[in-house]
Every structure is written in C-alpha cells, then in structure tokens.
Design a protein around this nucleic acid. Structure first.
Lengths: 132, 132
DNA sequence: GTGTTTGCAAAGTGTTTGCAATTTA
DNA sequence: TAAATTGCAAACACTTTGCAAACAC
C-alpha cells in the first residue's frame, strides 16, 4: 500500500490512524466517485476484493468516518443505514424498488419559505428525499 | 363502545373489521388531533388506558391502517418507524434530541425546479425533513 | 512499550412471523 | 360456522458491545 495515498492523508488529517482496514475501506469509498453504501454492501465489496475485515469493523469505521466528516449518513429506509461519500449539501432520489440512491445537487432544487425552527432550536440540516 | 363512532365508520369504509383492538387503537390515533407515533409509544399508551393489546397487533394494525390510507409512514430515524395520522401532503421538523416530529404544512414551503425522475420512473412522494 | 484498533461472538433493538385460540359477521 | 384477527413466543435483520489479541507509532 502506497504510504502517501490520498486516503492515507485524508485519514491522518481527520485524526484517524491509517490502519490496514481503514485504508482499504477508505479506498473503496473515496476512490470510486460519489457512493451510497450500506455497511453490509461495503463489507461484501471488501471481501470480494480480498480485504479481510469484519462486519463490526465496517460499522465502526463508517461511524468514525462520519464523525470525522468524511461521510454523511442518509436516512431513507427505516431498516438500514446508508452512508454517502458526498458530504456537501445535496439531496436524493431514492429508488424504493432497488434501494439505490442518486444525488440531486443542491443547486438543482429551489427550496424557499421554510417556516422558522420551533422555539429555541436551530436548523441543522434539510433533507429532501424524492421517492421514485 | 359506541357502535357508530367516527372510528367505527372509518374502519368499515376502509374495509377493516372494527375489532376491539382496532377501534381502541384507532381512537387513540384519530381522536387526538394530528399525531406522530412509533409502535412502541402507541402500545404503551394503549396499556396505560387499560386497553389489552399485544405489541404484534399494534404493528399489524399500524401497517393495515397505512395500507388502507388512514396513516402514513415517516422515515426520519434509521432505527424506528413513525406513523403520522396526517395523510395529506406535508413535511416535518424532526427534533433529534427528543425524537419528536412537527408538521410543516405543504403550503408553508416553496419547492420548485426539482430535476426529472431517473429514466422510466415517476415521483411517488417528496419528503422534506428539517432536522433541528 | 503504550495506547489504539480489530475480530469475534454475544447481546441488543425494533420488527415480523407461525400458529393455535379467539372473535367477528 | 367460516373466515378474519389476535397473542404469544420464536425468529429475524441490522447494529452495537465487551474483551482479548494484534497492530501502529
């Protein structure tokens, strides 16, 4: 494994030790364009690439990456968690039949006139899910 | 139990037999304004009102009501299902800390310029969740 | 070496299911 | 009485956790 790959640097600057598992999962996640993955899917993908990693580590890693701001968790299905490698402001098409997600760039929707947040709260995020 | 309550009629016209459990759950759901409930919360509420009903029946009932169009399922939390007694087009504030939902009437937001659905699909629903 | 990370297996949580007993029409 | 519904307990799917062994620095 090249010691100074993009992913290596990315982990270091996020304060995460670039372990074998994190590097391998990071490469799958970040070197293949924008991706939307469940833990199970990422685990399967890793095993297919001969990367030995346990499902528990995949879960831990996804959460650590999310906390570090490298991933974003998307809620579209009440029985599964999706993680999105695109952490910028954007929205989603959710294809219910297949469980696939497609990005909708924030500048392709026009949302305005949102009422103010309930007393004493502030808006953390606005998620638009278009079910198709 | 009054034989011709609103709920009784509502169940009948939805093609659901007005059993003791469905009537009792229906009253809790529909005679207290707009509500957002999880199965667990509704079950607890029922037991507090001395309504003997099993959690399995609460789940079955929520799904039957949803299929019949009396409820709508809301996805905001990847570990719990919420059911909303307001089945008209509207959106939500989600208070992450407490797990509470508040309605945002559809006419209080302005959403336009949505890109077209992916090839061969049509938009079933647009959900806006404002996390606060 | 020391503290962090990993893998495993076990436990946890919310939800669904099979089936006998009960209820409704 | 026939068909639908219920309750229970077991099964399920996904996720988290405790802890000893392995690894990174």
């Amino acid at each position: 494994m090249r010691p100074f790959s993009k992913v290596f640097e990315r982990l270091k600057s996020a304060g995460l030790r670039p372990t074998r598992q994190r590097l391998a999962l990071g490469k799958l996640l970040f070197e293949n364009g924008d991706r939307h993955l469940t833990a199970e899917k990422l685990h399967t993908e890793a095993l297919n690439e001969e990367i030995r990693v346990s499902l528990a580590t995949v879960y831990n890693t996804l959460h650590q990456f999310t906390e570090a701001g490298l991933l974003r968790e998307i809620v579209v299905d009440s029985s599964r968690s999706y993680f999105d490698t695109n952490t910028t402001n954007h929205h989603h098409f959710f294809i219910e039949e297949t469980g696939d997600l497609h990005d909708i760039p924030a500048d392709q929707v026009n949302l305005s006139d949102l009422p103010p947040a309930p007393e004493g709260r502030e808006i953390k995020r606005v998620d638009i899910v278009v079910r198709v």
